[in-house]
Design a protein around this nucleic acid. Structure first.
Length: 299
DNA sequence: TTCCAGGGGTAGA
DNA sequence: TCTACCCATGGA
């Protein structure tokens, strides 16, 4: 294979690539691949002009190294790849204010030293919307399978028969609803995803504006807007808000309830209200405090 | 068979 | 605002 082009991006203070990878399950969802031995994050990415590249992302030292394979890219295309990578690995998310907050709060003081906070996200809000819907009311194994089938069926391939990129809403919208449902096997979620893709493709809906919107309004207002999306309820809206950098509401799912049950309630079941109450004192940092909590230490 | 998984939509109170 | 019920799918 031809030598890849390498982008070497400098890391902000405290940034820990390994902690970002371990923060949640997204590295296991296509088109991401995670090679634990090589500590390499892989991903096929399709550029706006249709070019498809294979990314190999590592951080062996003080930089984030992004190896790009595929067609030659000009400066504009390279900038597009860099922008996408920076967004996905949260290289530009500023956690310094959160870390200062952690210093004064028992239970959070381990966080700055471990460089916690960053989480992997999709290149687009559309991608994280789809994945969030696919995590609801199902097992993690099925979530992975649904996303894998979506990518395999509709994603643009790298080279001839290589791995595929996350499909655009335009490609999903072009599929017949019945064919989409049969291919992805996402159950009752399929119409949510397909209809949303159609609305984006028709220009009636713009999910990418949420990247900016998350910086303009507080978490409750952002969640109210996210909850208008099909298949997005309290949990998924909070999870999407978290990925957008808005941390004021804990995404409570069965996994969160289980953590709180074991760590704080002697193993007895907890209500959603109790989970929220446990992190209420952390204000606009509630979701980050929850995600970065030292669950082993408190159990 | 029945239950339920990193919940959400809807109707009725 | 809260509750009850339904929802495709697939593994236990």
């Amino acid at each position: 294979m031809e030598e890849p082009v390498r982008l070497a991006l400098s890391l902000p203070p405290h940034y820990r690539f390994d902690m970002m990878i371990e923060a949640h399950g997204w590295p296991q969802l296509a088109p991401f691949t995670w090679d634990a031995e090589a500590k390499a994050l892989g991903r096929v990415e399709q550029l706006a002009n249709g070019k498809v590249v294979l990314l190999d992302i590592k951080s062996p030292g003080a930089t984030l190294d992004v190896d790009i394979r595929g067609p030659d890219l000009d400066a504009v295309e390279l900038a597009e790849v860099e922008r996408a990578v920076r967004w996905m690995v949260e290289l530009d998310e500023d956690f310094e204010e959160f870390y200062a907050f952690c210093d004064g709060h028992p239970g959070l003081q381990h966080i700055p030293g471990r460089g916690l906070g960053a989480m992997l996200r999709g290149a687009t809000v559309w991608e994280d919307y789809v994945k969030s819907v696919c995590t609801t009311n199902t097992t993690w194994a099925q979530t992975r399978a649904m996303v894998a089938r979506l990518v395999e069926t509709y994603g643009a391939p790298f080279e001839r028969d290589g791995p595929r990129a996350f499909p655009s809403p335009v490609v999903v919208a072009a599929a017949a609803p019945e064919a989409f449902a049969a291919a992805v096997r996402a159950g009752y979620r399929a119409p949510y995803l397909h209809t949303t893709a159609c609305e984006i493709a028709e220009g009636k809906l713009d999910l990418e504006r949420f990247k900016q919107r998350a910086r303009e309004v507080d978490t409750p207002a952002l969640m109210a807007e996210l909850r208008k999306l099909r298949g997005i309820g309290p949990y998924a809206a909070a999870h999407m808000a978290l990925l957008l950098g808005s941390y004021g509401y804990v995404p409570v799912d069965s996994w969160a309830r289980d953590l709180v049950r074991r760590a704080f309630n002697g193993g007895a079941p907890v209500s959603d209200r109790e989970v929220h109450a446990r992190f209420d004192r952390f204000g606009r940092w509630r979701a980050l405090a929850f995600r970065c909590w030292d669950w082993e230490g408190t159990a």
